[in-house]
Simulated scan of single mutants.
Amino acid sequence: MSLRRSSLVLAIVGVLLIAAAALIRFVLVPSMTKMPTEIDSRSTYTGSLQSFDPSKFALGDGVAFTVARHVDVDHVDGDVAVITSVSETQRPTGDSTSSHTYALSRVDYTQQSAPEGFEVEDQKGGMVFSLPMNPSPDGNTLYDTVTREAITLEHVGDSVLEGRDVFELRGNLTAPIADPAVLAPAQAGIAAMAGVGDGSVLPKQTLQVLAGVLPPEKAQPITAALAAQPDLVPVVLTVDTTIDMNIDTRFGSPLRSVQDQTTVLNMKNGDELIPLLDLSRAVVSTDDASVANTASKLSSSETMLDIVSKWLPLLLTVIGVVLIAVAFLRRRPEPATPSAGEVDDASGDVLEATTS
């Protein structure tokens, strides 16, 4: 049996539709899930800051502050993107801006080597923008810009936030301040208070006075260590950070983060750090409007991605298969060919007619 011309057209269209479904599923969809060459990610965080109050010899009352974070793509080199995260902090005592640049894979958002001509920060393998699509809840880390270390994130539960399924992750880290933009002004304040040094040392006499006004449980290790210290005692600034994050289970994007960070002045005693004073404590979290906005964008992206990755290829494949089946069923039957016996009988009839 042969195909009619219309059936052949149906079969060709069916094959093309199935090929289009494969291209969408295996070419278009992966490109849609990559980091775009242009992004405009903005989030707002609100919090409270307590600073050391000499009159109370403890942390004072909290003052409100806000942080506006903007992430932008500076450069794209194939599947590597150079991004810059800018945070603008507004406090009653004054505003400040911090900026950090990273090189990330556009496929899974992991750390990459910087393209030629760019300088980026070593994020120690930690997340700085987002986890990859369909992330694992385990084995994740978050880069802390203040200490320039990666915080291990533990999966502590699952929940729903603004209609999105999220992983609840929590991390803790205590480490020395390493970011010069944070360390320099803090050490300048210590130097001004001590009247000597660059903020990396304090007079032994000052620490003896300090030990005299601290509770006995805190004063005892300080007094014991001071006996072997020089006149200028080395001090180190550390931060104790606790962070809770809600990570979208489909896209890997952070919806909400709550960070509690205390800056501590420590006396260095060999390899040991002995806490002296809490200098400040900042508690900051993503505001509700930013959470809702991010969740809405993710839901819209998920709907579009499901249409393109699942329903559109499925629809094209089904239509293609149906067209091919219709073309097969509409085949033109072959003309009947007489058998050899039938041909001989016919010839005999003709012969008899001729001779009679």
Rank of each mutant, 00 (worst) to 15 (best):
T37W: 02
S253V: 13
G14R: 04
L305H: 08
I12A: 14
G189I: 04
S253M: 11
V29N: 04
V15E: 01
P176R: 08
N266A: 06
P216S: 13
A81T: 00
L28S: 07
L104R: 05
A224D: 14
A336N: 08
L265W: 02
D138H: 13
F26P: 12
S339N: 12
P234V: 10
V322K: 02
S280V: 01
I247M: 12
A227N: 12
A191V: 02
Q187R: 15
P333F: 07
G197E: 06
D287Y: 03
V258C: 07
E302M: 12
A194D: 06
A353W: 05
E119K: 15
A228D: 14
L202A: 10
V291Y: 00
Q208P: 00
P92V: 11
N266E: 01
N172Q: 15
Q205N: 07
I274P: 03
A211I: 07
D138E: 15
G212H: 13
V182I: 11
I39Q: 04
V291A: 08
D345N: 11
R164A: 03
S99Y: 08
Q50S: 11
T101V: 10
T242R: 14
G341E: 11
I39E: 08
D158W: 01
E116L: 13
R5F: 12
N134M: 13
L10F: 11
Q111D: 09
K124L: 07
V13K: 04
D278Q: 13
E88A: 14
A295N: 08
Q112V: 04
E168V: 11
S6I: 11
V156M: 05
A22P: 01
V86K: 11
A346K: 09
S290G: 10
V321L: 10
P203F: 02
R331C: 06
G47L: 05
A346N: 13
D138M: 09
P203W: 01
G126A: 11
Q261D: 06
I319C: 04
A81Q: 04
T241N: 09
A211P: 00
L232R: 01
T66E: 13
G189S: 15
L277H: 03
E38A: 11
G139A: 09
R4L: 08
M35Q: 06
A68P: 03
P221D: 05
S6G: 10
T286D: 02
V318L: 09
L255M: 00
R42E: 07
T101H: 12
T262D: 10
I190T: 02
V322G: 01
F52W: 15
T238Y: 05
D40I: 04
P30Y: 07
I151K: 03
L3C: 00
G195I: 02
A211F: 02
V264A: 01
M32I: 09
